[in-house]
Design a binder for these strands. Structure first.
Length: 327
DNA sequence: AAAGGGGTCAACCGCCCGACA
DNA sequence: GTGTCGGGCGGTTGACCCCTT
């Protein structure tokens, strides 16, 4: 099969369209309609290839194009997220459900806005499920912590494991965001799932479209803790909370997407005054390296900052474990 | 005020598919 | 069956803009 290159290089113009070119294209299409894109530019007096004309028309000049930012009030963002969870990168199919929006526009918006926010929330923008690397990091750290009760040196040493550093780097780089930003998009997702319930800022967003295969994958993978549980509190939804942190070797551990349990993180940190924050072990400058037990008057501020910038990871120390003594 | 860096988005690229001769 | 064409698709590029230093 095959097709000649979309645009011949013989003197055809590329790059941004001028107002004059736009007007020529509009005038021609208004008179003759569109189609026959290969011969259209010649007939319209344009030094462009047909493909360029078609894209310019469909993505910009079409009279029914709806310009401007995507509207949260009109649920455009929610619809995009929801449709993407079902359709994947089928931008044209998504665009078909959003009158006046083009596939190119939706694709750009996804890549520049939504995708980044999902990543920062710890959600895989491809699968719409929590990122496995974060789950593995959580599992790794929790098991290391458990082992540290038996072998403190082993815990510190394991933190220099290349696998750990890779996971932790990915985790920290994805996790530098403001809570407000997290909560805004989390609220969008929450409302997709529970449109009749107002979103509470400290709730964990429900992840949509978690398939049985996903669950099977989790349950079948012995390397992952069973963090996925059907949430009885949202029994009227089809979602799952990837929250928690239930009874693995007697621990609560896992990750979170909101601010709840932040106190537990801080409590944990305070219990290990000599524990070097992960960020200081890594090359990334994104995480504070300020130790938490400096006793200064700014301790609370720094602790808040530390917690808020690392609020995806929750560690609960099992009662009875003297962490201070182990370090 | 100027430089640098990051974000945004229009436009392009390469590939694919279906229709048709 | 084969080649050509029209059109659609997702990914990528690069110019522009804005913000920070």
């Amino acid at each position: 099969m095959g097709k000649p290159p979309g645009c011949d290089k013989n003197g055809l113009k590329k790059g941004p369209w001028t107002a004059e070119e736009d007007q020529k294209l509009i005038d021609y299409i208004q008179k003759h309609g569109h189609g026959r894109w290969r011969t259209l530019p010649k007939n319209a007096g344009l030094k462009r290839c047909g493909k360029s004309c078609r894209l310019r028309w469909t993505n910009y000049l079409r009279p029914d194009i709806k310009r401007g930012k995507f509207s949260i009030e009109e649920d455009e963002v929610k619809v995009i997220i929801q449709l993407h969870s079902v359709l994947g990168n089928k931008w044209s199919a998504i665009a078909a459900r959003l009158p006046g929006r083009t596939d190119n526009e939706i694709k750009n918006y996804w890549n520049t806005h939504i995708k980044k926010k999902l990543l920062r929330m710890g959600i895989d923008p491809v699968t719409h499920a929590p990122r496995l690397d974060l789950l593995e990091l959580s599992s790794f750290l929790s098991s290391s912590l458990y082992n540290s009760s038996l072998n403190p040196a082993g815990f510190v040493g394991s933190m220099f494991n290349p696998s750990f550093l890779s996971l932790a780097t990915a985790f920290l780089s994805s996790n530098q965001t403001k809570n407000l930003e997290i909560n805004n998009l989390a609220g969008d997702i929450q409302q997709i799932q529970n449109p009749y319930e107002p979103y509470q800022g400290n709730q964990v967003p429900v992840i949509t479209q978690v398939s049985q295969a996903d669950l099977n994958q989790f349950s079948a993978n012995p390397g992952l803790p069973n963090l996925w549980q059907i949430d009885n509190n949202v029994s009227d939804s089809k979602g799952f909370f990837p929250t928690t942190m239930q009874n693995i070797n007697g621990y609560n551990h896992g990750f979170n997407l909101g601010d709840q349990n932040l106190q537990q993180v801080c409590t944990f940190s305070e219990k290990i005054p000599n524990l070097v924050p992960f960020g200081s072990l890594l090359s990334t400058p994104s995480s504070s390296s300020t130790l938490l037990n400096n006793g200064s008057s700014t301790e609370d501020i720094e602790r808040d900052s530390y917690c808020s910038s690392n609020n995806l990871l929750i560690f609960d120390v099992p009662k009875g474990l003297n962490v201070n003594g182990s370090m």
